[in-house]
Design a protein around this nucleic acid. Structure first.
Lengths: 339, 339
DNA sequence: CTGTTAGCGCCTTCAA
DNA sequence: TTGAAGGCGCTAACAG
């Protein structure tokens, strides 16, 4: 690796001269010197040693990101969006992954990242996460942004999608198609968005005076695809049956659609189906799935914006929650209520 | 941030004493001193400054990974696998992303990562990638591993799935079910795996003396889902029509299935369908998709293994290609040939 | 057993 | 307009 010193010696100049010309582009130097330095740097293939610069500047331009192995298929897209947003802000992403629910690993990873002097932390929270560690970080005013849906996180700076309006829009969409007998597979018990989604659902139903049938709401079990399929079968074999089923995420909806096909029912002629998240495959199933999208670019840049704000301030700022708006994607899995 | 010096002053010790106790666990020190140092470190919340250590050791324990925004939905899973494998090897992943085909960005990113003194580079190649930059890196013997399917990459150390045996297995699966009239949507023109996949297909077909019908092979157009759907419609409306269709990836297969449903044909009773990659949703479509899986954990650990080998050696080693074996996943989208 | 010192590569006063 | 020197936090000789 070529260093400033080597360039300086080669040109019989001082290191600080070379440093200033290359990095601060100080206009005080005469054009000739500047040109010589530039040429030498290019010729020797000089690359500034970022580790040394970090050392002396006390800043690494690195953001530590903790993700987890999510069953959610949109995870890849979100990561790329995150990396791009971080890059665009002049930082790099140091990414570590933990398996869902492993809090000891999470604490270790936080220490690892802090030891590496990251300028800020971006943590994707899971059902079980190391709240105590977040609190310690918060007390030290370490720049930090969380993403996720845990109720306990409301005291931290958090970015999450606007689940309430998303589910409201989706329910309205069904109501506008004439549906009134709507089932809802809530699934997960632990995430906070459950509350918001249900609230969006209730609000839309209430607006048109549609009644919510308790036996058409699945919200007590863990939200696995197998259970969603079973529930789907059960409600559709009863009488009367719902004319539309909402699923709290696309994967659950796919499982439901699979089951509906098995029952020999048609989508959307016999029953309308909608999911949530708009994973990439939602447009490739048959029929293509009506769902709600959370723009991952917007989500990522919001996270980075909130984090860089704190980094620039030199410390964490008062906690605030940001809701990223969602977008209804109406496709062919929903249609007019059967006559 | 607490430093060694602060601990040393607090205990009236030298910094090197503290350093050695904490990091090399030197057994020469007496138990009491060691305990005092340990306690103080814990009490003050000492975290070693990794930047400073990197500086002096000339090693960052960081691997630079360049990914790209892949339309492939398994990307997220691969990334997590990569991060975990890197972590398990005692490194951390500095991840950057480029949009597919943006070679200027790729060169900049390589420089950024090198400036950050990463110990090695792991690059996910795309159709267009900065081969010249790889060559420069290679000439400097920078530890580097590529992944991907470009023909031109054969001179670099590369990890990719064994496309030939994967497609061979898949074709055999159809042949064993009695199919002889098999269509094949190759799609992409540029990736090297195209050659291997076709070769696996041919080999299996030749073994049982099945004839390959040119009009049932789609390999001239770019591999978009729209074109795959159109091709599917065309071959199925002609007579005689194929009894099975192979798609070069799951997304194409989903598009094909969608089209087959539109035509009112049944899968697999009328036509069998198979994909490639085993994206997570392949098991959730109706019917679940027969496909070929590339284990992402194995893939990731192989990449890391090859890279760490070079890092430990201090420089790149002679180029070699590693093929990660694939696994046939037979589901319900394939069935016996119609009578 | 423990302390002192000399850097790692760079930036930033301060001095010339 | 340029150079010298100190120091970021740590490790690794080299002394004692």
């Amino acid at each position: 690796m070529v260093t400033l010193k080597q360039i300086a010696e080669e040109l019989h100049l001082g290191v600080s001269t070379v440093s200033r010309v290359l990095h601060s582009d100080d206009p005080r130097y005469n054009a000739e010197t500047r040109q010589r330095v530039r040429d030498a740097a290019r010729r020797l293939g000089y690359l500034p040693n970022h580790v040394a610069r970090s050392m002396v500047r006390g800043k690494t331009f690195t953001i530590g990101v903790i993700g987890y192995t999510s069953p959610d298929m949109a995870a890849g897209q979100r990561m790329h969006a995150m990396a791009s947003a971080i890059d665009a802000a002049g930082y790099k992403m140091l990414y570590v992954s933990r398996t869902a629910g492993d809090m000891d690993t999470e604490r270790r990873l936080i220490d690892d990242l802090m030891a590496r002097q990251v300028d800020g932390l971006l943590i994707g929270t899971d059902v079980y996460c190391a709240i105590d560690a977040y609190e310690a970080l918060s007390a030290r005013r370490v720049p930090m942004v969380l993403t996720g849906h845990l109720r306990e996180l409301s005291k931290f700076t958090l970015v999450r999608m606007n689940s309430e309006s998303g589910m409201y829009d989706l329910t309205r969409h069904l109501l506008d198609l004439g549906h009134r007998r709507i089932a809802y597979v809530v699934g997960s018990e632990v995430h906070f968005y459950r509350v918001h989604r249900i609230s969006g659902f209730r609000k839309a139903m209430a607006e048109v005076g549609a009644e919510i049938q308790p036996q058409w709401i699945m919200d007590q079990m863990p939200g696995r695809t197998g259970e969603a399929a079973l529930f789907t079968r059960t409600v559709l074999q009863a009488s009367p049956r719902p004319t539309a089923i909402l699923y709290n995420n696309d994967e659950l909806a796919f499982a439901g659609m699979q089951e509906i096909m098995r029952l020999g029912l048609r989508i959307p002629q016999d029953v309308s189906v909608a999911g949530f998240n708009d994973v990439q495959l939602a447009q490739l199933t048959w029929p293509p799935l009506t769902t709600v999208r959370q723009p991952s670019d917007e989500f990522a840049s919001k996270c980075v914006e909130l984090l860089v704000e704190q980094i620039d301030a030199g410390h964490a700022l008062p906690a605030r929650q940001v809701l990223v708006p969602t977008q209804l994607i109406a496709r062919q899995s929903t249609g007019p209520v059967p006559a």
